[in-house]
Amino acid sequence: MAARALLRVPQRAKRGEVIEIRALISHIMETGFRHSERGASIARDIITDFRCTYNGAEIFRARFYPAIAANPFITFTTIATESGTLRFEWSGDNEFTASESAAISVE
């Protein structure tokens, strides 16, 4: 099944307001340090990059590493400047990509 994501972006905000953004995505985040029951090493499979753009302009970026738990949850703040779209992009091992967007209206 494809990756699922859950976002929390305020639908409405005042111009200049600090808004909290949350993004949760389903991913196993296999560290690459584990072994199977038969001793074979399990290949690393993690998300390595997260990016958030606000009307095309990048406002947040993060690099993920093997120590990050499965189904990574990320929260950050930004300033509501104008109405538009926040776009969230995740990418990682095995050509993993996922994206999701949310609309915000700023008064």
Binding site: L6, R8, N71
Partner: peptide, 17 residues
Amino acid sequence: DDDTSNPAMLWVLDGEA
């Protein structure tokens, strides 16, 4: 308590599909 931070809701989305 918050459905956007409860990871179990990711499974609920799959269940709905």
